[in-house]
């Protein structure tokens, strides 16, 4: 036995694929959950709900992936990637569910890679380019505060057991995302003159897209309270909410979405019939 062999052996022993969470092992968090649509649930409505929430997560994860190798500190690389991976995991489950119940039998990949931009149902907030770190954490705060409030409701009371299970898993993740974003908004708001200015600009840029989130799910009291509390601690002003024309849930998007999708779908579309 070579002297290093014991190290190789100990490496081989550990088949701990769990840490890839929904990665190499495709360990299904829905294991044991009945996937038939329960009585009294409208499949089309359920599919639309899953598709909207799935697209939100997918596009948000795609933007977070753009931060890779560009984060302001190495520790933040790890943190942003964790959040991106959580959202990507949520997207996969929700898109899978949408394809199951909408009658088309489309897979998560069919939905992610073969639709055009007007078929995407994400809110426009998530498709906006990353901007600077202040804009990205402002967006993450608003997005995760809203999504957490929505998921808490779904986990507690939605009639579809699959969506309930996905939401229950997501609540833990989103609680962390909101915390991460809130801490950064406070740090940047309070930190230096430059960071204060940038953070205020970030909040101002995000504000016009908030009303669209409430149109998708009106949890404004809860989210408004969170945002007010964070802005106060950060010595920032929460801009008055104005509403933009159009609705991402209806397929209206900014010009930023098409290039994002082009990049995301390019390889998959270039090799039809490819195995990945």
């Amino acid at each position: 036995m070579r002297e290093d062999d014991h190290v190789y052996l100990s490496l081989a022993e550990e088949q701990d694929d769990a840490r890839w969470a929904f990665g190499t092992g495709f360990e299904d968090p829905l294991h044991g959950v009945d996937t038939s649509v329960p009585d009294g649930v409208d499949p089309a409505e359920l599919a639309a709900l899953c598709l909207g929430l799935g697209d939100d997560a997918l596009i948000a994860a795609q933007r977070l992936a753009e931060w890779v190798t560009r984060a302001p500190e190495l520790e933040e690389e790890v943190a942003l990637a964790n959040i991106g991976l959580d959202l990507l995991g949520q997207a996969r489950l929700l898109l899978t569910r949408a394809g199951q119940v909408d009658g088309t039998g489309r897979s998560e990949d069919d939905l992610a890679y073969l639709r055009e931009s007007d078929d995407f149902r994400n809110v426009r907030l998530v498709e906006l380019p990353n901007g600077d770190f202040a804009f990205s954490v402002a967006r993450l705060l608003v997005f995760s505060a809203h999504r957490l409030a929505v998921f808490e409701r779904l986990a507690a009371g939605h009639a579809d057991p699959v969506l309930r299970a996905v939401a229950a898993k997501g609540v833990k993740e989103l609680t962390y995302h909101r915390q991460y974003a809130a801490e950064w908004v406070v740090r940047l708001g309070d930190g230096t003159d430059e960071s204060h200015r940038r953070m205020q600009e970030g909040l101002d840029a995000v504000a016009p897209y908030i009303e669209e989130l409430y149109r998708a799910a009106d949890v404004r009291d809860e989210v408004g309270a969170v945002l007010a509390q964070v802005a106060d601690a950060a010595t920032l002003k929460l801009p008055a909410a104005e509403s933009l024309e159009g609705d991402g849930r209806a397929g209206d998007h900014t010009p930023c979405l098409a290039p994002l999708l082009f990049e995301m779908q390019e390889v998959a579309r270039a090799l039809p019939g490819g195995q990945w």
Binding site: E75, V78, A79, N82, Y176, Q179
Partner: peptide, 20 residues
């Protein structure tokens, strides 16, 4: 690890050393 304060250090530690 590096962090600006204790709270950030805990967050980073959780991300880096425990994979949450």
């Amino acid at each position: 690890l590096h962090a600006a304060d204790e709270r950030m250090a805990l967050t980073h530690a959780r991300d880096l050393y425990t994979r949450r």
